[in-house]
Write a protein that binds this DNA or RNA. Structure first.
Ligand SMILES: [Mn+2]
Ligand SMILES: [Mn+2]
Ligand SMILES: [Zn+2]
Ligand SMILES: [Zn+2]
Lengths: 131, 131
DNA sequence: GATCTTCATGACAATCATTCTCATTTAGAC
DNA sequence: GTCTAAATGAGAATGATTGTCATGAAGATC
């Protein structure tokens, strides 16, 4: 069951949001993307930006993190499993591989009898431009 | 600079919160702890529970995670650095060691020129009782 | 033990990211 | 072109968390 896959309609708004998030390699929140679009003259609504980014993340097009203060931030994502090193001050993001981690996850699952283990692994730091 | 360490006053409320969080090995939110205390007859205020748990976490007495829906949850913490395997449905938590991770963090920091790297690593799954 | 200063508390309001509502628009199927 | 379900947007609602500020009480000092 690859389950419930709905193909969304191709609306002007969806294209605008997709372009806006693709235009920047840093993680950005729905509000930030919305602001950016409005400044460019778009009339897209805030709720639409929220809904579109959520849908894109659910379909795997975007990656999600939670900022240290709890907001959800999105970024266009390289396909395949990986993690992120995010600059606390400017949001600049590097995708990183953690080759050992998947094996570790399986080992931990077995050891403690947990099923459907998911891991959330993010690194936060200060990038060289912001130091 | 081990910096600004203030010793909080020993109030009845602080003791009640400390006992309540220590009484349960699962992560719990401020609201949950507050409910629990009120049901036991305590008159402690919600804001006080928020403040007390925050302070205890800042001083290292408690560990913090963000639940998948974004709330902050606390748990009495074993001293020393470690990570958690948390049951999505009941909150039961196992503390785990990730021996290789600190070295990996340092390697990544060097590789990408990031400073003050912090890692957030949590595992979520379904425990055997909840399966 | 009484006094005093300062920090802690609690009721409530305020904040603010996110979600909901619902009337209106429109993509895409026919 | 018609039709219908899905998408949109304006605004209201939600809900966790934080701020405000008058009152209470640790605990230092006498
Ligand atoms: Mn990514
Ligand atoms: Mn812990
Ligand atoms: Zn930076
Ligand atoms: Zn469980």
């Amino acid at each position: 069951m690859t389950s419930t896959e709905r193909t969304p309609r191709n609306t002007r708004q969806r294209a605008e949001v997709r372009d806006a998030v693709a235009a920047n390699p840093a993680f950005a929140t729905s509000q930030t993307i919305h602001d950016r679009l409005r400044h460019e003259g778009s009339k897209v609504g805030l709720a639409t930006v929220y809904r579109t980014l959520q849908a894109m993340a659910a379909s795997g097009e975007l990656d999600t993190i939670r900022t240290p203060d709890g907001q959800i931030a999105y970024r266009t994502c390289t396909p395949g499993h990986h993690h992120h090193l995010v600059c606390r001050s400017c949001g600049r993001t590097v995708e990183i591989d953690l080759p050992g981690l998947e094996a570790t996850t399986r080992r931990i699952a077995g050891e403690y009898g947990f099923a459907e283990i998911d891991h959330e692994v993010e690194f936060f730091g200060t990038c060289s431009s912001c130091a």
